[in-house]
């Protein structure tokens, strides 16, 4: 059984006057143990897709099965429980509680799982050790560097031993060297058996993932090994950029000739 099964997923945002389709007809299966990049430009629907996969949002139509369970039928509370039990989130902007220490941040999901205090602490310490932050546990997020903050966020995602690690542009707010470190951490976690879905707009990152899914305008237009999808993407981007450049040039010429 696949971990994630997406069938005819449609998501439309109702803005009152107009309806904006974000996802039009998404089909995808992700097996346990995969490392998949979802790549696309802003507005391609990749964040919407990631919210749906993460059970933060529900599709307008279609069926989403997580571990074989149809998520679209779940209540709000059940969705919260699914997020707690099955999914570990890593966000671009870290999303840590500013007033809590690194350790308390990592413990938070276990509070909602009803884990006893002692065990909570032990598991949080272990998760922080996994990301190499055992000596920063008492620090508040403001006292940590960007890379360290993202490590805390990863530890928080790992501490529940989720079926799925869901990372949304995890290197987006980091300098390239730190971003590289974090990406390596994901590669290590994948090697350790974790299932990872990574949302990114950087073809370079997608190229290094075993599998990539490319979204354009709410549709999957490529799905395959990361290198190939990224190459096709770069070509398409190149063609697009050329077309845009030519259009701009024509416009400029038209403007220059009154």
């Amino acid at each position: 059984m696949a971990l994630i099964e997406l069938e005819h997923i449609v998501k439309t945002y109702d803005l009152g006057l107009s309806k904006v389709p974000a996802l039009r007809d998404i089909h995808a299966r992700i097996e346990r143990g995969e490392f998949v990049a979802i790549v696309g430009q802003s507005g391609s629907g990749k964040s919407t897709l990631m919210n749906i996969i993460g059970c933060l949002d529900v599709p307008t139509a279609g069926i989403y099965r997580l571990s074989g369970r149809d998520v679209s039928t779940l209540s709000d509370d059940q969705l919260a429980d699914v997020r707690n039990l099955e999914i570990g989130f890593v966000f671009q902007s870290f999303q840590l509680l500013p007033r809590a220490s690194a350790l308390e941040n990592v413990e938070l999901p276990l509070v909602y799982r009803g884990v006893a205090k002692k065990e909570r602490r032990d598991r949080a310490v272990e998760a922080l050790a996994t990301v190499g932050l055992e000596d920063r546990m008492k620090h508040k997020p403001a006292e940590l560097s960007g890379g360290q903050r993202q490590r805390v966020a990863i530890a928080r995602a790992l501490v529940t031993q989720p079926s799925l690690l869901l990372a949304d542009e995890p290197t987006g707010n980091l300098d390239s060297r730190t971003g590289e470190e974090i990406f390596h951490l994901f590669l290590d976690l994948h090697a350790g058996g974790n299932t990872i879905v990574l949302v990114t707009h950087e073809p370079k990152l997608a190229a290094r993932c075993p599998r990539a899914v490319r979204l354009v305008d709410g549709l999957v237009i490529a799905d395959g090994p990361g290198r190939e999808v990224a190459a096709a993407n770069a070509e398409a981007l190149g063609a697009e950029a050329l077309a845009q450049f030519q259009a701009a040039e024509r416009a400029a010429q038209a403007g220059a000739r009154p």
Binding site: D76, D77, A80, R83, N84, L85, F89, Q95, P109, Y112
Partner: peptide, 16 residues
């Protein structure tokens, strides 16, 4: 508000 989002993402229910 952000904190609420974070808590909800890691498993807090509405009642929480």
């Amino acid at each position: 508000t952000r904190e609420i989002g974070i808590r909800r993402a890691v498993g807090a229910r509405r009642a929480t």
